[in-house]
Simulated assay, not measured.
Amino acid sequence: MKLVGATALVTGSNRGMGAQFVEQLLERGAARVYAATRNPDAVQRIPGVEVLTLDVTDQSAIAAAAAAAQDTSLLINNAGSSTNQRLVDGDLDKIRLEMDTHYYGTLNMVRAFAPILRANGGGAILNMLSALSWLAFDGVGAYCSAKSAEWGLTNSVRLELVDQRTQVTGLLVGSVDTDMMAGWDVPKADPKLVVEKALDGIEAGTLEVLADDGTVQLKSALSQDPSVLYPNTSPSKWSMTS
């Protein structure tokens, strides 16, 4: 997938990672970038950018975006949400929002744009995943579960779209210095550098882009017993006395 001359659509493009994708795609020679967002007034109007109003949880809005962006050759599913909900006792409506955004939103975007990509020669899809696709934390179980489902979706649609020559890439990263992570006092990656790696990966045909060292280490740990990643949950650690 070559970015020079490409037409890209980026969801969640008004800030953070999305805004970086728009900027860097233009710098790399994209002919047009559709900046799709629920808040179109927040997108900077610059040459080469066409703003679309889009909520990925709204099927009619997805259909309208697809109708308006028939020349798309690269779809970047970046839109996200973070409701900080536990699964056992959290707000079910907010838990559903995580799935509607990360899983069903991504799936519906893929379903809407797959025929467009096929008509335009195959193109590519990049799904913004997370290290939390592979690792759960108490307090954000809804987000972790939705991102895990989106990772599975990414692998599945890659298989389904190979015959139409659509490249499907997953971008996995830990904490990124964006508004969504503003309340977390943890090391954070520079969104500019993460997007650079993602776009390099698209052009190189990489199926999974691991954007930081922590994510690389985490993936290598997935082959170990779960007690390595979750040492406090093993029954052998529980006390049988009060």
Rank of each mutant, 00 (worst) to 15 (best):
A69P: 13
A114F: 03
E23Q: 14
G5F: 10
A66R: 14
V22R: 04
V162S: 07
W238F: 14
D190I: 11
L87M: 05
N84K: 14
V51N: 01
D163A: 08
R111T: 12
G105D: 02
A42V: 11
D212T: 02
S13Y: 02
R32C: 11
A221K: 14
L26N: 04
N232A: 15
A30L: 03
L9T: 02
A124S: 14
P40L: 08
A36L: 08
K197E: 01
V56E: 06
L222D: 05
L171Y: 07
L87G: 03
I95L: 06
V168E: 00
L117N: 04
A189N: 07
V228C: 14
L193M: 13
G12M: 09
G80F: 01
D179M: 05
Q85K: 07
S13G: 05
R111N: 13
Y143W: 04
P187M: 04
V4Y: 06
A142Y: 03
G5V: 14
A8T: 10
V209Y: 03
A36V: 11
G121N: 08
S73P: 10
D163C: 04
N155G: 07
V157H: 02
N77K: 04
K188N: 01
C144S: 05
A142K: 06
N232P: 10
M109V: 09
G29P: 15
L159Q: 09
S81V: 15
E98Q: 15
N78T: 01
D200V: 04
M1L: 09
A69D: 05
L74F: 04
A119W: 05
G152N: 12
T72A: 13
A63C: 04
V173N: 00
L87Y: 03
N120G: 09
L172W: 07
M181C: 13
V194R: 00
A61M: 09
L129S: 01
K188Y: 02
S242Q: 13
S239H: 13
S239G: 13
Q24D: 02
N78S: 03
G29M: 14
D58V: 12
G18Q: 01
L132E: 10
L218G: 09
I125M: 04
V56I: 15
L153W: 01
A64Q: 14
T215E: 00
N78A: 03
L129E: 00
G29S: 13
D89G: 14
A119K: 08
